[in-house]
Structures are given as structure tokens and as C-alpha cells.
Write a protein that binds this DNA or RNA. Structure first.
Length: 654
RNA sequence: GCACCCAUAGCUCAAUUGGAUAGAGCAUCGGUCUUCGGAACCGAAGGUUGUAGGUUCGAAUCCUACUGGGUGUACCA
């Protein structure tokens, strides 16, 4: 049973007769902010006071009189301006706990109307090595997949791999001109990735050289503007001051771009290897694009190379996914939709949605100045086209009623336009949602650069996490009171669980919408609000059963002993465990895994307090002992289930 | 230029979407300590929620202006 829902239902039946729109008032029945106010609170009396024309405390008193919660709660109390504080009866908690105790699903009921949800996450680009940004999408997406599935929805995960874009042209060009066959044979993907970076660098060089005069001219203009403004500033007011400041900051940013451009150009030209290469390939930028359009146009040679490169790239990606224990139902990359793109554009044209503008085929949407380009001047399709084809496929073939995109916030505008176009195209009943997340920043507070290629590789990241976890596992094992308990293989396995859990948790426990600073030490820290803390709590519960030599199954048979939540810490833990379903609903509602991590942290916390205050195995009174063992059992199952839904594993020993 | 986002304790982040005294973790200081697993527990200190107004019973949250930062912005994905 979802306690919050039950309470809301009780309020609903009364509120329905009082106001037109009970919904918003019902939503004001909430978990208590502070334990001193009870377990739940209803905050609707204050806003209702206006509608009903009565003082809020009087409204609250009426509500209390009419809402029948006597079977659930102690008599409600009115506090402050009109808050209604609700404290659940302990014997209700005990009854409910008994139900959760015997429930496989820990009291979580499947949703009434399941949806068919396609969730799109990870979506790396085959040419570039995966980095922490992909990790964030992957980890959040996988957690949402698991949570929504557990709640009873029908989920399909789809890894929309970037395997058909401009970057492939660069690889093709690189392979044609610069490949080191030895290296390619040894480690094909590493070599391809080198080629990509090389071509990218050289073409960046040429575009920069082209841009530089324009930039320098702009710099001169900006300097002039600042000088003029300074001359005239003297008698000017705030307005002028502000303008000057603006001009100066413009100047500064242009100056920076010029410096950056100059140093890039100098770097290449002075380099013994890059310099001659750049000189020998003046048209690399357009030629690489040409390779892309040859591939798209069905060129046999390029297609053959593509067929050769792609499996190798996928293998490398799959190594990472396997290590993270993440699987996809589908991995339909951009190339999969390639044959459908022309048709999509035709359809858009025939429906009058797409029109030609500046030789490109565009969809113009009311709220946007920029067009949504579905076909470029040169006839090539864009990722907008692919994304539209993908929507059509997901709806018509996969039967999706809902599509979730776990993608970087920087693509927000793209998705708004995509959804806008899709709705006009005929998918107005489809629920499309951009599950946006913030940028992963470096220690300097600036976004991780992906182009320069000097980001932390995901493989190394996992290695580092696991090796740090290993030394902690060893240290802990060796300091156990009765000597070490784990052999080498167990230590390694636990280190992996702890290390990977640490990495995933670091991503999940932030509100996904905010940027966050990537920090090795925090990510892999083993204390505080971390996966380890909860994994450790789990291992301690298991330790109780093991040391006391009690089978958890045996405890489940003890129907003769009822649960008792007499001690303050027992009651707090019991109530917390009953809220699992509430936490999952909130997580699914907001698509925010951090709501679940918060819940689990609070649960582990409540357990640690209980564990400190209430003896379990040492307790002499058998009824109390069994009751506490039951609490321990549900704690263990809740932590394990909750962590698993986040893609984090547990171990009975650590 | 236009659009969107952000600013919360020394640091990293929360805040159930407008609720009561803004909470955690880290770091700091103090206590528990012959441990049912101390990777623990309890406590203290730390805040004019960027600034100034406004809306109302009530604002970190909504509105306006300002300051400082970020992102996107016609053919990369």
C-alpha cells in the first residue's frame, strides 16, 4: 500500500464536495517536512480559506471533522496558520509492515495503466571514445529503464548510436590517407580514433586559417568601438558605463578567440608532423565531407569500409557496456534509418510542413526563428530527419505510447523543435520527453572537452574505481575482529561491485538537471552519502543473520510472531521501509533517480540508527528478537531491490 | 542581437514543485568505543538562498529590474 495515496484518497472524497478542482488541494497532502510535525501533513487549509471564505484554521477544523482517517492516524492536529499534522497509528504501521514482509514486491503495486515506453539513452558516437557525458546518459537511462519496468510499464531500451554522420567521413578520409596498417591490425578502433582526431585537427586548422582574417578585422572593429566609447564616456551616465562594459567584454572574448585561433595555427604549422600534412591536404574539410556523402550515396568502396569499421567500433563499446552490466533491447543506430529518410522528407513536404528555404528543406515552427532543417543544400539529410524517422519507427513498429530521451541539456532546443514537428506531423498523442541532464564539468568548472581527445577514457575510469575499491576492501577485511574472511576472488568481486556502484551513484544522486563537477575523490569516496554506505548497511544486515546463524527463510515462516515497532528507532525504520512505493512513484513521476537515492540513503541511515540502538541477535526476548529480525530482513530486501533498480549491486559480505 | 539555463553553508549538492526553524555529505570541532561488522552512531559550529523591489496568510521556488556565469542560435550530432 502506498500510504500517501491512501491518505490522499481520504482527503479527495471530502474535497470533491467542497471545490471544483480538488486535484491541487489533494496534492498538498505530503510527507511531513519535519518529523516533529508527525508523519504526513495536509497543507490545503490555507489556500482553501480564500475559496471557502473562512479562516484557515476553521477550514482545517472542518476538514479534520469530515475526513475519516481514524483507522489510519492518531487524531490530527492543527498547527500554525492551518497545517494539519497527521501521525500514523503504530499498529497500522505494524499491520502494513506485515503485508510488506510477505510481499515479493515489497508492497509496491504495479501501475494501473501501463505504458509502452521507448527509452533512448547512451547514444555514443562510434568515432569518438566514450566519455563521462555518455556515462551520465547511460547510467541515468539504465536506472529509469529498471525503475519504470519494476513499476509495471512495458519498456524498450534503444541505443541510438551515431554511426552515420560527418565523423565517419573523417575516418574514411583518414583511413584513405593516413592509416598505419600495423596499428590498425593490432588495435583497429584505437587507430580509427587516432585518424578521426587527426583529420579533425587538420580540418580545424584550415577552417581556422580561413576564419582568421575575419576575426582579426572584428578585433579591430571592437577595439575601435571601445576607444570611441571611452572617449565619449566622460560625462555619460550609467547607461554609457554599462555599454562600455559590454563592449569591453565583447572585445575580450574576440581577443580570446583570436589568440586561440593563432595558437592553434602556430601549433600545427610548427609541428614537424602536422605542418606538412596540413599543407598537403588543403581541402581536407570538404573532402572529408565528400566521403560522408559518398557513403550516404551508396558508394561501394566506402560502404565496404564502413561495414568493416563498424563491428570493431561496436565491440569496443560493448566492452564498456558489459563492464557496466548494461544491456539494450535494441541498438538501432542512425544508419538503420537511412533508407527511410527520403520518404520522411517527402511526407513532410506533402503535408505542407517542409518547404524550401535557401536551398535547404526546412520546417518552420511558430516559436522558433531558426528552421528545423531536414535536408541540407547538398541533399544530405540531417539528424533532425533521422530523429523524425526514429519517432515514426518507434510508434509504428515498436508501438510506443511514450518516448524518453536521456540526452544532454544542450540539445534542449533541438528536442523542442523535434517534438513540435512530430506533433504537427501527426504524433500529437505521443508522449515525448527530453529527460535532460546537465553538463559534467572538470575541476576548473568548465565543461569537459571532447574534441581535443584528452578526456578520461571510460575504461580507465572503471579500472581506477575498482582498484581504489580493492584496497579499501582489503584494508577492511584485514581489520575484522576475527581475522580476514574473504579470499582473493571474493575481494576482487566485491571491489568491482563497490567501485562500479560508486561511479554510478555519483551520477545518480545529483539532480540530473544540474551541472556537476566531476571529482575522482568524491566519486570513489567510501563514506557519507555514497553507494558504499548502503552496500555496507546491506552487508551488515546479512552479517546479523549469518553470525546469529538464522536463516532468513526461517524468519519468514514465523507468522506466530507479529512485528512490533515500540522503540523510536524501530518505528522510524518501519515507516521508512513502508515508503518504498512512495519513493518509486515520485522517482518515476519526475524521472529523477536522485529521489530514489535520497530514499535509500535515508533508509540506510534509519537502519544504522536502529542498529546502534536496538540489539537484534543479542536480544533475549524472543518475540522482540524475531520482530527485529523481520525488520532487518525487509531492510536488506529494500536496499538490495532499490540499489538494483539503480544498476548497483550488493554483496552479503564486504 | 535573440532564446534558454544557473547562482543556496568553506567545498560538492538537496529541498517532495508556493509551506512551518532552508537540509545532507565532505572538511572542522567534540562525544560514543572490551563493536549483534567502527566503511558506524550521537552532537556542535557553519546561511541576509547573487542584489533590489514586487505578488500573498507564506517565496530559494512566481513576477520585474540589475549583477555575475553558462549554453544554444541555417545546413555537426
Amino acid at each position: 500500500m502506498n500510504l500517501l495515496e491512501v491518505l490522499r484518497n481520504r482527503f479527495q472524497s471530502v474535497l470533491e464536495n467542497k471545490v471544483e478542482d480538488p486535484g491541487r488541494y489533494i496534492a498538498m497532502v505530503l510527507p511531513a517536512q519535519n518529523a516533529q510535525f508527525g508523519d504526513y501533513q495536509a497543507n490545503c487549509a490555507m489556500p482553501l480559506s480564500k475559496v471557502l471564505g473562512k479562516p484557515p484554521r476553521e477550514v482545517a477544523a472542518d476538514l479534520i471533522a469530515e475526513v475519516d482517517v481514524s483507522d489510519l492516524c492518531e487524531p490530527p492536529e492543527i498547527a500554525g496558520p492551518g497545517f494539519i499534522n497527521l501521525k500514523l497509528k503504530t499498529d497500522l504501521l505494524e499491520q502494513e509492515f506485515a503485508k510488506v514482509f510477505t510481499s515479493e514486491r515489497l508492497g509496491v503495486e504495479p501501475v494501473a495503466s501501463p505504458e509502452k515506453i521507448v527509452i533512448d539513452y547512451s547514444s555514443p558516437n562510434v568515432a569518438k571514445p566514450m566519455h563521462v557525458g555518455h556515462l551520465r546518459s547511460t547510467v541515468i537511462g539504465d536506472a529509469l529503464y529498471k525503475i519504470l519496468s519494476f513499476l509495471g510499464h512495458d519498456l524498450t531500451s534503444d541505443n541510438h548510436i551515431g554511426d552515420w554522420g560527418t565523423q565517419f567521413g573523417m575516418i574514411l578520409y583518414g583511413y584513405r590517407n593516413f592509416v598505419d596498417q600495423e596499428a590498425y591490425k593490432k588495435e583497429p578502433v584505437a587507430e580509427l580514433s587516432r585518424l578521426y582526431r587527426l583529420v579533425n585537427k587538420l580540418s580545424e586548422y584550415h577552417t581556422t586559417v580561413e576564419m582568421l582574417p575575419g576575426l582579426e578585422w572584428k578585433l579591430g572593429e571592437a577595439e575601435q568601438a571601445v576607444n570611441d566609447a571611452e572617449a565619449q564616456f566622460e560625462q555619460d551616465d550609467k547607461q554609457g558605463k554599462k555599454q562600455l562594459k559590454k563592449l569591453r567584454s565583447d572585445l575580450e572574448s574576440i581577443r580570446q578567440s583570436v589568440t586561440k585561433a593563432e595558437s592553434l595555427v602556430a601549433e600545427i604549422e610548427e609541428d614537424e608532423i602536422y605542418g606538412p600534412l596540413a599543407a598537403a591536404h588543403p581541402n581536407i574539410h570538404t573532402d572529408a565531407r565528400l566521403e560522408t556523402s559518398k557513403l550516404h550515396g551508396g558508394d561501394a568502396e566506402n560502404r565496404k569500409l564502413w561495414d568493416e569499421f563498424l563491428p570493431a567500433c561496436l565491440d569496443v563499446m560493448n566492452v564498456i557496456y558489459n563492464r557496466l552490466h548494461i544491456k539494450f533491447d535494441y541498438s538501432l543506430g542512425e544508419s538503420f534509418y537511412q533508407p527511410q529518410l527520403a520518404d520522411v522528407v517527402e511526407e513532410l513536404k506533402s503535408k505542407g510542413l517542409a518547404e524550401e528555404s535557401q536551398k535547404a528543406m526546412c520546417v518552420f515552427l511558430p516559436d522558433f526563428k531558426a528552421p528545423f532543417i531536414v535536408q541540407k543544400q547538398d541533399g544530405a539529410f540531417t539528424y533532425a530527419t533521422t530523429d523524425l524517422a526514429t519517432i515514426r519507427y518507434r510508434v509504428e513498429t515498436l508501438k510506443a505510447t511514450s518516448i524518453l530521451y536521456v540526452v544532454d541539456a544542450r540539445q534542449g532546443e533541438h528536442f523542442q523543435m523535434l517534438f513540435g514537428t512530430a506533433r504537427r506531423w501527426g504524433y500529437e498523442n505521443l508522449n515525448m520527453q527530453h529527460v535532460s541532464f546537465g553538463t559534467v564539468m572538470g575541476q576548473d568548472g568548465k565543461p569537459f572537452k571532447t574534441r581535443s581527445g584528452d578526456t578520461v577514457g571510460l575504461g580507465e575510469l572503471l579500472d581506477e574505481a575498482i582498484s581504489r575499491a580493492f584496497s579499501i576492501v582489503v584494508a577492511n577485511d584485514e581489520s575484522k575482529p576475527n581475522g580476514p574472511e574473504l579470499d582473493e576472488a571474493e575481494r576482487k568481486q566485491i571491489a568491482e561491485i563497490v567501485g562500479l556502484g560508486g561511479i554510478k551513484y555519483a551520477d545518480l544522486h545529483h539532480n540530473r538537471e544540474s551541472d556537476y563537477i566531476f571529482d575522482w575523490d568524491k566519486m570513489l569516496s567510501m563514506t557519507g552519502d555514497t553507494a558504499t554506505y548502503m552496500q555496507y548497511a546491506y552487508a551488515r544486515v546479512c552479517g546479523i543473520f549469518r553470525k546469529a546463524d538464522v536463516e532468513r527463510d526461517a524468519i519468514r515462516q514465523r507468522e506466530d510472531v507479529s512485528i512490533q515497532l515500540t522503540h523510536e528507532a524501530e518505528r522510524a525504520l518501519g515507516l521508512q521501509l513502508l515508503r518504498f512505493s512512495e519513493a518509486l512513484s515520485a522517482t518515476a513521476q519526475e524521472l529523477k533517480p536522485n529521489l530514489l537515492t535520497n530514499y535509500l540513503f535515508e533508509t540506510a541511515n534509519a537502519f544504522s540508527t536502529f542498529y546502534d540502538r536496538c540489539p537484534v541477535a543479542k536480544e533475549n526476548d524472543e518475540a522482540v528478537r524475531i520482530s527485529r529480525l523481520k525488520l532487518c530482513d525487509v531492510t536488506a530486501r529494500t536496499l538490495k531491490q532499490g540499489l538494483n533498480l539503480l544498476g548497483i549491486e550488493t554483496s552479503e559480505r564486504m
